[in-house]
């Protein structure tokens, strides 16, 4: 699978939320999207997922214009996880995960597997409105996993913002596993160590423009990130000799 962004621009009124973004992403990679608040990350992700029609430019998935795909076809190629999932019905978490199979046909096994992968199998009958923010976030990820076709695309907007350390690690491993099965994984994150941990490549946005792109280790340096986020950063080594970005 191959994702191509060609001069993608998204305007809200007179404001450019995303400006002339060009990128090509191949299957088997985890691409992290970084940037300050309101830099256009969510807009770009929604455009990649075919949920936002670009004002100009093109998003192609294996040569097909993503906005022209039929709903069923799009659902079979990509799955989306929002930053805050919403369900306006008193469904159980299991029922929400089952909705991931809406267009692709029911699969009890896929739903069970997805619930198990996000550690919700024993809590699956909890009602949505009784679930914590972290449980809801894991449910949304499980829904995407139940929907996902291996070798397709996963698009996630801040999928770990409500997760504790154990589940953060769990989701990181899941995303890496999906990429190892050939998926394109694109995820917006704010957690830089997490981005360094899971990302093969990184796209950095500032004021809607792509200002940095490339291999994670090469691009995410104290200098480049400090410049984008407007803070001082430095490397620090732990006892085992691993490098970490810290604010001095």
């Amino acid at each position: 699978m191959r994702l191509r962004l060609a001069d993608v621009t998204v305007r809200y009124g007179s404001r450019n939320a995303v400006r002339e973004v060009n990128a090509t992403i191949n299957g088997g990679k985890v691409v992290v999207l970084l940037g300050p608040n309101a830099s256009g990350k969510t807009t770009l992700l929604r455009t990649i997922a075919g949920l936002q029609i670009p004002s100009s430019g093109l998003v192609e998935l294996d040569g097909a214009n993503i906005t022209k795909l039929k709903p069923h076809d799009r659902a079979s190629r990509l799955a989306w996880v929002p930053s805050v999932a919403e369900v306006s019905s008193s469904f159980s978490l299991r029922r929400v995960v089952e909705l991931g199979r809406y267009a692709l046909g029911p699969s009890r096994q896929r739903v069970e597997d997805a619930l198990a992968k996000v550690d919700l199998l024993n809590r699956s009958e909890t009602l949505w409105y009784e679930a914590s923010a972290g449980m809801r976030q894991r449910t949304a990820i499980a829904r995407a996993l139940a929907q996902r076709t291996p070798g397709g695309m996963l698009v996630l907007d801040e999928p770990t913002s409500a997760l504790d350390l154990r589940h953060l690690r769990m989701v990181g491993d899941l995303l890496r596993q999906c990429a190892s099965e050939g998926d394109i994984v694109v995820a917006a994150v704010h957690n830089i160590p997490f981005a360094l941990d899971i990302g093969d490549e990184v796209l950095v946005l500032r004021e809607g423009q792509l200002v940095l792109a490339g291999a994670t280790g090469a691009v995410l340096t104290p200098g480049s990130l400090g410049d984008v986020f407007g803070v001082d950063l430095a490397w620090a080594a732990d006892d085992a000799g691993n490098r970490h970005l810290v604010q001095p």
Binding site: P71, A75, L78, E86, F91, L99, Y102, A103
Partner: peptide, 20 residues
């Protein structure tokens, strides 16, 4: 009915699972 179930997700999520 099944479409109504899926339409209970947010707009973006409903579209992403294949709801028109």
């Amino acid at each position: 009915g099944p479409t109504l179930d899926a339409a209970c997700l947010s707009d973006d999520e409903a579209k992403s699972v294949g709801v028109d």
